[in-house]
């Protein structure tokens, strides 16, 4: 049992933080945007090898990359191309970024679709792999802080390449990814809010000196910190149950997080000039993915209390033969 990062992991994190630091500023012209996809940063993360961490080092390091990148204000794809795709398809290079969707949502607005090279479709048992070149995709405006796109015409999956039996593995790593990005975004959003409540004065004292504000911030911080460790454990173990636990815990805490962080910013928290929404509305966007809270909670119950639900080990091995 060792909950501290190794020296190599620390070096990875420090190198990524340096890059993120250089990309921490929102360009002036994007000041009133709901979402900001930093295409330059996305390319840089790919070129400097951070999105290969899953293949080159391991899932825990890949989750660390998703977590650290999640602290930034930019919308990126690290879950799809840094975690899910390489762990599902260790031997296949596919065109990134990689969007992820449940088959039932294929006709709806899909997160990151407008910036992605490939779409992985969770078809329950199997996964369909859809290169996106040649598809007409309409950008969608939304309150969420990710770019969204919608197929102009619903694609026909019957001719798409299929990965038989890979559905569970896709959902597993998707869940780890959701948890990792939410943990990173929450960490940054809480720090941003703490700064705000220290500076903003009401009734002659800082907002952050009121006990009701302090206690709720501590509770949100406790949730975010726990989520970080649950996520790293899920990435480390490669166990489906751990992934479901991390996602379930993440999705359980969103309601209070969203309410409290926006609440403590008062009217400023309603604007999009204020940066808060770049983190919180990425978290909101992830809330329903990979089946959402009920599916992750039910997956935990099934694993723990169904006789057949004994633990299966790391997933890449199972789909490697594809």
């Amino acid at each position: 049992m060792d909950l501290q990062l190794t020296e190599e992991q620390q070096a990875l994190v420090a190198a990524l933080q340096d890059i993120m630091q250089d990309h921490a500023e929102l360009p002036q012209e994007r000041r009133l945007s709901y979402a900001w996809h930093d295409a330059g940063l996305q390319t840089l993360l790919g070129e400097s090898g951070f999105l290969d961490a899953a293949r080159e080092i391991g899932p825990l390091e890949a989750a660390l990359v998703v977590f650290e990148a999640g602290k930034g204000i930019a919308a990126l794809d690290t879950i799809g191309c840094g975690l899910v795709a390489p762990l599902l398809l260790p031997d296949l290079r596919i065109e990134g970024p990689v969007a992820l969707v449940d088959r039932r949502d294929l006709g709806k607005a899909i997160r990151n679709l407008s910036i992605s090279g490939t779409l992985l479709v969770d078809c329950g048992e199997d996964v369909a792999l859809l290169p996106l070149a040649g598809f007409a995709i309409d950008s969608v405006d939304s309150i969420f802080a990710f770019p969204y796109g919608r197929f102009a015409e619903r694609p026909d999956l019957s001719s798409a390449r299929r990965l038989p039996g890979a559905g569970a593995a896709m959902r597993q790593w998707w869940r780890v990814g959701i948890a990792a990005e939410m943990a990173g975004a929450a960490d940054a959003a809480i720090a941003f809010t703490i700064d705000y409540v220290k500076q903003r004065h009401v009734f002659g004292r800082p907002v952050g000196s009121f006990q009701s504000v302090q206690h709720r911030l501590v509770q949100r911080h406790g949730w975010a910190k726990s989520l970080y460790y649950l996520t790293m454990k899920a990435a480390w173990s490669g166990a489906e149950s751990d992934a479901a636990i991390a996602a379930c815990f993440a999705q359980t805490g969103i309601q209070s997080l969203m309410f409290d962080l926006h609440q403590f910013h008062g009217g400023m928290g309603v604007t999009i000039e204020h940066l808060l929404h770049f983190w919180t509305y990425r978290i909101r966007a992830l809330q329903a993915e990979a089946g959402g809270l009920s599916a992750s909670a039910l997956a935990i119950a099934e694993r723990r209390w169904t006789e057949a639900g004994s633990e299966v080990d790391a997933v890449p091995a199972r789909v490697a033969g594809l």
Partner: peptide
């Protein structure tokens, strides 16, 4: 079943936070 699953997730969170302190 979902309610029970959510409680498991919360206890696992508590477990890791406790391990963190001991570590």
């Amino acid at each position: 079943r979902a309610a029970a699953g959510r409680i498991v997730a919360k206890f696992e969170a508590a477990r890791l936070m406790t391990y963190l302190v001991v570590d």
